[in-house]
Design a protein around this nucleic acid. Structure first.
Lengths: 171, 171
DNA sequence: GTACCCCTACTCGGATAGCGAGTGTCCGAGTCGGAATGG
DNA sequence: CCATTCCGACTCGGACACTCGCTATCCGAGTAGGGGTAC
C-alpha cells in the first residue's frame, strides 16, 4: 500500500516543465539533475508519462520532454495512473463465494459490502487527486517562493536552455 | 499501490466473528476453512490483528480468536492499519531541497504543495474507511442474504462450535 | 464414589523459505546541428 | 561567399540485472480438557 517513488519524481518534473515557454523542453538528464536524482531511472519514469500522453518528446540535440497539454489539464491522478497504473487498491476476489457452507442454491446478487466500502474510499482518494492540477500547484508554489529561490531557478534554466529565461505566470 | 491480500481475508474473518455470541471464538483453521483460504497464512494475518488489539486469543482446545471489542468499534481503517501499517501512501522525501540550484540561503518554510495534495487525498481515503465499521457491514450483509445462505451458515457454525447456534442481530 | 494426576490433542506464535513487483542500470536506435569541403 | 555533404554528439527508448517486501509454510510453546488411577 505504498505509492511508487516515481510518482514524486515525475510530479516535481511536471511542475518544472510547466513553467517553461510553450514548445521548449528539458532532457531527462537535466530533469534528474535538477532534483539530484538517478538520471537513468528518471528517464524510465518519464517514458511512462509519455505512454500516458502527459508529455511529448523530441530526439537529438536540443530535444527532451515537454508537457503535451496545458498544466491546468494535468492532474495528480493522471500522473499516478501513468506511473502506478489505474487499478483499485482493493481488489475483491469474492472469497465470500468460496468455502464449505456455500451451496449451489446460494445467491449473491447484492455486491460485497466490504468491496463496496473500499470502492467508496478509493473514489474519494481519486477525486481529491483529480481535482488537483499541476497548474494549481505551480501557482501556490510560486506564491510561497522567496526572491532568492526564483533567481537561482531562472539562472539555472537559462544555462540549461542556452537562452535567456524569464519567469512568467501561465494559466 | 496495492493493498495486501490479507486485508480482504481478515475483514471477512472479522465479519464472521462479529456474529458469534460474546466470549465465543473460532480457530484460525476454521476461519480459513470458511472461505477456503490457506490456514497458515490466515493465522499469520490474525496474529497481526491481535497485535493491533482488534481480536483476543485463547489457546488450547475450544480456544481461538474472538473480537476484542464490539463490532461497532472496529472500522475498516483499523484492519488496514493492522495488516498494512498506518504509513501514508505518499511519503515526501523533500527532493525539492536537493539539486544544484538550491543555495544555502534558500528557505522552505511553506510545505511542499505536492505532498500536501497527497496528504489531503490520503485523509479522504482514511476518513471513508474510518466511518465504516464491521457492525455496519454485518447489518447490510444480513439484510441482503437469502434464507438458504443463512441456514447453511447456522448449520456450519453449530458444527464448528460444537453447540447449537442461532443468528441474532447485535448492535 | 471422588479427587488427583498425567497425557493427549488442539491452539496460538514466531522463525523460516520462495517469488514477484518495483528499483536501478546499461547500451542501441534515431535525429538534429554544425563543421568541413568543394564549387 | 554559399550550398552540400558528412560526421559527431546528443537524446530517447527498450532490454537487462538486482533488491526488498509480500506470500506461503512449517514446527515449537503453551494450555484446556478428558481419561485413568489411586485412595
Amino acid at each position: 500500500m505504498k505509492l511508487s517513488e516515481g510518482v514524486e519524481w515525475t510530479a516535481h518534473a511536471c511542475l518544472l516543465l510547466s513553467i517553461l515557454p510553450p514548445g521548449v523542453g528539458l532532457s531527462a538528464k537535466a530533469l534528474a539533475e535538477f532534483h539530484d536524482l538517478a538520471p537513468a531511472y528518471m528517464a524510465k519514469h518519464l517514458q511512462a508519462l509519455k505512454r500516458a500522453g502527459i508529455v511529448e518528446t523530441s530526439k537529438g540535440p536540443g530535444g527532451g520532454y515537454r508537457l503535451a497539454r496545458d498544466a491546468a489539464e494535468v492532474s495528480l491522478l493522471d500522473i499516478v495512473g501513468a506511473i502506478d497504473g489505474n487499478e483499485a487498491m482493493f481488489r475483491c476476489s469474492e472469497i465470500r463465494r468460496k468455502g464449505p457452507c456455500i451451496s449451489k442454491q446460494a445467491s449473491f446478487r447484492a455486491p460485497c459490502h466490504i468491496a463496496s466500502a473500499f470502492g467508496r474510499a478509493d473514489n474519494a482518494w481519486r477525486a481529491e487527486l483529480a481535482a488537483t492540477t499541476i497548474a494549481q500547484i505551480a501557482k501556490r508554489t510560486a506564491e510561497n517562493s522567496s526572491e532568492t529561490n526564483r533567481d537561482d531557478l531562472v539562472q539555472w534554466l537559462s544555462m540549461k536552455l542556452g537562452e535567456p529565461f524569464t519567469l512568467s505566470v501561465r494559466s
